[in-house]
Each structure stands twice: as structure tokens, then as C-alpha cells.
């Protein structure tokens, strides 16, 4: 027994040392090109763009479905698109954004539907990478639930630091790289390449999480306390994926309306045909972006009573 335990301890110690080393090593050259590293540039926009501002918050449904130039041309606000990746989790997005909100800002939150179900909003692998690779102060403001949601990705993250491809291959899809965003934060490169979307999301299979609604409510209060305004909107979502989760999407809409948020549009309006999608059920082609942005502008004016550009 003693020999057995000693060998187990030795085996696990070597493994633990290997994983610890992988965890503390700096981000690999390949990781540094990923879109997650767009966060500092977007933070810089949040710090420097003058008021009045329109801050768009969400995952890649926001970065890949809004034409901020058109927003700027139509509304008397300076848009900032903070969208990066849904799997960072809505909780991180809200926690991160609030410190940048100023008086007079309009914050438009557009969560992917999955954010309201299960623990998705507490982040996945991408959140772990954001905390460990991207942020200068990794553990600052991290929540316990985010840790419990992401710790299982630590071994895979650590092992990736030793993969040769992380150092010698840099041929990622240009659409999903750090420099794929324009000066508003919109992902603009997809227009150059447009593969059809082959992906269809199945039915959301985790339970609705009312905690997330409470988190949005808390965020709204903080935004209001700063003299700003929060508006909820719905993401553009590919039609078959939409139909697979129609009941869950209705539940989300119901929860938004029952909690007294300012909500613009409705989910059905944003049930988009596959021909307008790009690569995934939440990303839009150039034509899709144009249609979606126009719809949002109309709703912001008519339903949220934002002023039209003079």
C-alpha cells in the first residue's frame, strides 16, 4: 500500500508540476492573435470615446451583427461595440463594462439566448483564457461561480502551452483574430469571405436561470445610478436554430418583459434566414448586418425613444 501511494503521489506530482508550469507560462504567439486579445483595444475605446455614447454589450452576436458606422450616422451617439465571444459569459461582460459607464451613456445589452440558461453566463474556456492570458490582473474581480465553471478547462489550457502548433502555426481564420475589428469594435473582415452557415443549434437543454435576470437587474441599477440607461435587445438568430429553441426563447422574452426592463423589438423579428448568416447561427453576412442594424435603429427610435440624428 505504501509503495502504491508513493507512486501515485509521484505520478500526480509530476503531472501537477507540468500543468502548473503550463498555467503560468505566458500566452503563446498563436493565442495572442486570437480575438480574445481584442479586449484591451475595446477597453481603450470605452475609456476614450467621448460622450454621448452607445455601448453595445454581448458576445459575438454583437460584434458580428452591427454596423456601428450606420448607428453613428442615424443616432446622435458614438457607438462602441464591446462584443467579443459569447463563451466569455454575460456576467463577465456586465462586470467588466460597468466600470466604464458614464453619465448619459446608453448601454444596449444583447445576450445570446444561451446566456439565460444553465451556467453558460458564468463563462467557459474563453473566460479562463481571458483571465489568464489577456488581463494584466488575472484574479481581479473574478467570481466564485466563474471559477467553478471554468476550472475544468485549466488542464487543457496548460497542456496547450506545450503544443508546437501554438508557437509555429499562425494560420487562424482572419475573421476570428485580434485585428478583425474596426475602430468601433465591429468585426468587419467577414465581408471578404463568406462561407455558408452549416451549423444549426439544437434545443437549449439546460434550465432557465433566473439568477441571470437578477444579475441584469443589478447591472441596470448600477447603470441608472451612474446617470446612464440600459436597454435590452434580441440577437439575430438563424431560423432553424431559432425554431429548435422557440419555447426557451419565448421564456427569455417573457422574463425580460416581466422584470420591467426597457426592451426593444422581439425575438421573432430577429429570426433570420440562413442566407443572411455567416459561419454560425449568431453571425451575420454583410447583408444581414445591414438589415439587422437598420431594424435596431428603428426600434431604438420608436420604442426606446432615442433621438434621431439631426
Amino acid at each position: 500500500m505504501k509503495s502504491f501511494l508513493l507512486k501515485i503521489i509521484a505520478f500526480l506530482s509530476i503531472l501537477a508540476a507540468f500543468l502548473a508550469l503550463g498555467t503560468v507560462l505566458p500566452a503563446t504567439p498563436r493565442a495572442k492573435t486570437s480575438l480574445l486579445f481584442a479586449e484591451p483595444a475595446k477597453d481603450s475605446l470605452l475609456r476614450s470615446v467621448p460622450s454621448p455614447r452607445l455601448i453595445l454589450v454581448g458576445g459575438s452576436n454583437v460584434s458580428m451583427s452591427i454596423d456601428s458606422q450606420r448607428l453613428k450616422d442615424s443616432l446622435p451617439y458614438n457607438p462602441i461595440n464591446t462584443g467579443i465571444h459569447a463563451a466569455i459569459g454575460l456576467i463577465y461582460m456586465l462586470d467588466h463594462t460597468i466600470s466604464f459607464v458614464r453619465k448619459g451613456d446608453v448601454v444596449i445589452v444583447i445576450p445570446e439566448y444561451d446566456q439565460l440558461f444553465g451556467n453558460f453566463a458564468y463563462g467557459h474556456q474563453e473566460l479562463l483564457r481571458t483571465f489568464l492570458d489577456v488581463r494584466a490582473t488575472p484574479l481581479d474581480s473574478i467570481r466564485w461561480k466563474q471559477i467553478s465553471n471554468t476550472y475544468e478547462f485549466i488542464p487543457g489550457y496548460a497542456v496547450s502551452k506545450f503544443a508546437p502548433s501554438e508557437y509555429f502555426r499562425k494560420d487562424g481564420d482572419a475573421v476570428y483574430l485580434r485585428d478583425a475589428f474596426n475602430h468601433y469594435g465591429d468585426s468587419y473582415k467577414r465581408a471578404e469571405k463568406m462561407p455558408p452557415n452549416e451549423l444549426v443549434f439544437g434545443q437549449i437543454d439546460t434550465p432557465f436561470n433566473p439568477e441571470i435576470i437578477a444579475e441584469i437587474k443589478t447591472f441596470e441599477k448600477k447603470v441608472n445610478a451612474k446617470g446612464a440607461k440600459m436597454i435590452l435587445a434580441f440577437p439575430a438568430f438563424e431560423e432553424r436554430s431559432f425554431d429548435n429553441s422557440a419555447a426557451e426563447i419565448a421564456q427569455v422574452e417573457q422574463a425580460y418583459r416581466n422584470n420591467g426592463f426597457i426592451v426593444v423589438g422581439n425575438p421573432t423579428k430577429y429570426r433570420f434566414p440562413n442566407r443572411l448568416m455567416y459561419d454560425t447561427p449568431y453571425h451575420l453576412s454583410a447583408e444581414g448586418v445591414s438589415i439587422r442594424t437598420q431594424m435596431l435603429i428603428k426600434e431604438l427610435i420608436e420604442e426606446a425613444h432615442l433621438k434621431r440624428h439631426e
Binding site: 505520478f11 509530476i14 487543457g156 496548460a158 497542456v159 503544443a163
Partner: peptide, 16 residues
């Protein structure tokens, strides 16, 4: 032998 087991562990972490 241990390297072989480590490879399986790493494959589990990397390709899960």
C-alpha cells in the same frame, strides 16, 4: 511506461 500513461492523460486534457 509512465510516459505512455502521461500521453494518455495529455490526450484527455487536450482533446476532450
Amino acid at each position: 511506461r509512465w510516459i505512455f500513461y502521461y500521453i494518455i492523460v495529455i490526450l484527455i486534457f487536450q482533446f476532450r
